[in-house]
Write a protein that binds this DNA or RNA. Structure first.
Lengths: 344, 344
DNA sequence: TTGAAAGCGCTAACAT
DNA sequence: ATGTTAGCGCTTTCAA
């Protein structure tokens, strides 16, 4: 092997020495600056190849006083929806020459803030929030207003927002259940994080219920697969799905929770959709499996990721100026086999 | 607002001026160096708070000639297994003061190499491969031997390896089907990437089949949900599952593919497990759903993530020296409802 | 078209 | 205990 672990990597200075040119000329070649003769360019390239030189981006970042790194704050990577979004975002970012730094720590509020702080210290050029859970004030105070921030799939008033029509989607989902003749329809909040999107979906649900003269029922997991909290009281999921005044329809804040409910129903012997109809939100990949067949509100994931990255890039480059942008994408209602007419 | 978008962030120089001290003293405080009087420390802290100073990690990295950034190369974030692994890895890394940079681009070989190159240019302190697909030679040539590399969940001979006993797990999975009386058992390779883990699992499958005197059948997706390639010939999945010499058992390279097969069976009206038994590998979260009930080989994900990060950290810090480490974790066989005795 | 030189913000000897 | 100083590798004016 030619490269020993110990030897320091070559710098432009080394390249310059080998090519018998100055540092600046080498720099000009590397940066594809104009005004370099073809002969020189080749001479430099030869030296670069010979030495195996590679740009030290850290030094460049310091000199240029900016980076091409995007900070991505994720709600929960274990949720396929966020994983898919993260994948798209990474793809679009890479295509535009950005490197991404992730920060997943949704576990602990303090850890989340520390993560954001670290991203800022690394001088990320922009911040992208996927599911913004933290106390708004704290995060905002840390971020300040020195770099562009985009919220995807969630919302806050201190950055651009790219989201789906959560209220409309939730309304449509609820309306679907109502149209099928269901009366006792519950809303199930997400177990992990009470994000801004949840609130909008809840609002859409309440709007549809109220319009139909039905009583909203807000559920929230207590001990994940067994009990839920309803009106401040802890109730077993068995009671909710099989009790006297059992729910016949559930609209979950997202597919993952909808699937959890499906699983509860299966274990309790409650037939879906014969005895229980379930609607989700997101349209994650597995929702489409024959065995799941989850009726859900689909978000245009790839499109949202693209718009988010593009918006952030334009803010960074300064091409986009002015007030906060709110870009709301249309949802698509996907009817599958988890919903049916209510029993007479 | 006090902070205008335009004003440059304060540096240690500014802090020093406000505190009436030198840059180095401020630096000493920031780095928690010893030999700073309590009074001075407080004076510096006051100035820091007043100015809202935050360390510029880029400058520090350049001065220290090292970073606390880990490069994570992922196979496919849309596969819940990798997403879960990524989450654990990010967690452990963050807990140890590392920031992570992701690179997902499994789409294109060229893009993958470009991603690795970018991570190196960003001077990552170490590289962690989750599912290493690329042509070994190319990636290795780019990385060289200047920084530590750990392969998790996959293997290569030029870095430390943290993996599950793929061969043993695959053998056990296949053996399970054989013990249930199945004769025509196929192996289904992953559709996205032909990784090293696939080969080991294939080897375990072949070993078990051969031992039982059965003929191995290697399948690979052609057009994802419809056709597979077997012995170089394209065959419809319908033929494979319902034809004259149909398979009665399938061992898939991972859960995602196993679930795809389950889905195919469902759509074709093939009853699982009555007419078809399916075993997966990974034990992703959804495999445990009542509706999926996938029998599978579980990998100790969190433990592997932890060992991987720790190993990488020890290589980086120099605490761990010497030859490549191969740390193989035990698998756990999880029997669920997707497997049963073969029909007589 | 090329080169000299002054930073970028921080660290880490070394001197005081 | 605090300050002085010389870098880290690159960019970017400005001269030559």
């Amino acid at each position: 092997m030619t490269t020993l672990r110990e030897r320091k990597p070559p710098t432009i200075h080394d390249v310059a020495r080998v090519a018998n040119l100055s540092k600046s000329t080498v720099s000009n070649v590397i940066r594809n600056a104009t005004g370099v003769s073809e002969a020189t360019r080749e001479r430099v390239q030869a030296a670069i190849d010979e030495l195996g030189y590679r740009t030290n981006v850290v030094a460049r970042q310091l000199a240029q006083q900016r980076t091409r790194v995007l900070g991505i704050v994720i709600g929960d990577l274990a949720n396929p929806f966020y994983a898919e979004m993260a994948k798209f975002i990474e793809n679009f970012a890479a295509a535009r020459g950005f490197q991404v730094m992730f920060c997943n720590t949704q576990v602990d509020h303090e850890v989340e803030l520390a993560g954001i702080r670290s991203l800022l210290e690394h001088q990320v050029a922009g911040l992208l929030f996927l599911a913004y859970a933290g106390s708004p004030a704290a995060a905002r105070a840390i971020v300040g207003s020195r770099l562009p921030v985009v919220f995807v799939t969630c919302a806050a008033d201190w950055g651009d927002v790219v989201a789906v029509d959560d209220v409309g989607g939730a309304d449509a989902a609820t309306q679907h259940l109502i149209a099928l003749g269901h009366k006792r329809i519950a809303y199930l909040a997400d177990s992990v994080l009470e994000e801004s999107a949840d609130n909008d979906r809840k609002a859409g649900y309440i709007r549809a219920m109220t319009r139909a003269g039905l009583q909203p029922q807000l559920l929230r997991w207590d001990a994940k697969p067994d009990t839920v909290v309803i009106d401040g009281k802890t109730v077993s999921i068995r009671a909710v799905l099989t009790g006297r005044n059992r729910m016949t329809g559930v609209f979950a804040a997202n597919d993952l929770n909808a699937i959890d409910i499906l699983d509860c129903a299966d274990r309790l012997g409650v037939a879906v959709p014969a005895q229980l109809s379930v609607v989700g939100f997101d349209n994650i990949a597995i929702a489409g499996l024959a065995r799941i067949g989850l009726t859900t509100v689909a978000q245009p994931k790839e499109m949202m990721a693209q718009i988010a990255v593009e918006t952030l890039e334009q803010r960074i480059s300064g091409k986009l100026k002015g007030g906060r942008l709110r870009q709301i994408a249309d949802f698509a209602f996907v009817e599958r086999t988890s919903t049916a007419h209510a029993e007479p």
